[in-house]
Structure formats: C-alpha cells, structure tokens
Amino acid sequence: MKIFKDRNKELEMEIDLYLNSLQKGSNTFLEGVKSYLRGEIEQFNERVKLITEQEKEADEHLVNIKYVLFRYNLIPDLSADMLELMDSMDDINDISKEVLLDLQVIKPNVDPLLIDDFGHIAKKSNKAVETLIKGVRLYLTEFRTVEDYITKTNLYESEVDTLLHNVKVKIFGGQINCTLSEKLLLDRFADELAALSDIAEKVASKLSVFRFKRSI
C-alpha cells in the first residue's frame, strides 16, 4: 500500500541509482574518448548514444531525489547540503555528454603524437570522478573516512593539470604539424577533457565542508 511506502528507503535507493548513473556516465565518457582516439567511429557513436541516455537517466533520478527529499521533509538538517551536492554532481554527466557530442560534431583531427596524452587526460579525469563518487558514497555512510577520497580526487585533478600543461606545450611547441586553428581546436578539446576533473575537485571541496556538518 502506498501509504506505508518507506520514503527513506526510496530516497536511499534514488541516491544510489543516481550515483550509479554518474559513474556509468563517466565510464562511458572515457570509453567514448578512447574510441574516438582509436578512430572506432561506430563504437564512438554508440557511446554518444549511451551517454545521452545515461545523462537523461541521471536527471530523472535527481528530480526524484529532490521530490522525495522535500515532499516528505527527509533529513531536514542536511537536505540543503545533500541537494547542493547532488546538483553539482549533475555537471559530471552534462560535461561528459558535451565533450562526446562536441567530438561527434567538430571531429577534431588528433595528431598521433597526442593520442596517448589525450587518453591519459581522459583516464585521469575519469579517475577523479570515480574517486569522488566513492567519497560521496562514504559521506552517506562512513563520513569519517571521506577525507582520504577528497585528497585523492584533488591529487588526480592536479595530475590532470600537469598532463594538460604538457599537452599544450606539445600542441604549441612545434612538435606537431598543423595550422593554428587546428591547434586551437585541440587546445579546446584538451581543456574539455580536463574540465571533468575540475568539476570533481569543485564537488570534493564542497564535500569536505559537508563532511564537517555531518559530525554531531
């Protein structure tokens, strides 16, 4: 019967499903970038389709979380933090989708010399997101250990920054042979790949504050 429905369980499940969608989205992003760099167009297009669905799925879960949270006045002391956390994480799938769609439309020509570098940026960005999601899961259960994951997320982000700098040096340092407009396009592509880790870092710093608020 609807009246006896456990709203707490429903919210717990929705949060879990939402985090799963974000994790899947980030993985699809990585696989999509890899496919593009390898020139596997068919697989790449499948990833684009998949991430669009995953982004939609995550949005639906986010709406449900908001609805259950406020309609039934659950965790009133933490609801604002929870909502801010979930809302800011939504950017993960948005950016992932945006990057893959840009690649599909703009189709930048990646020099073979840069393929590994781009691959590494995508991989580390994915790692940053993955670590962040683990941290968020822990914030919900074992909040004392969250700090380790926040540190790791920040570490991955700074690694991405280093990789980004290196790839920019390669792009504009004369090692590759292409026009300035192509270089600028590759530069933008590199920035977009790194943006995912920036989001992870931003959310991680919020999580650090929310973790303190959870302690009684």
Binding site: N8, L74, I75, M82, T141
Partner: peptide, 9 residues
C-alpha cells in the same frame, strides 16, 4: 555504517 537517510529515520 548507517546511511544518512536511515539515520534520519
């Protein structure tokens, strides 16, 4: 390891 939502309950 009580979930924050369960803790609320």
């Amino acid at each position: 390891k009580i979930h924050v939502v369960k803790m609320d309950k």
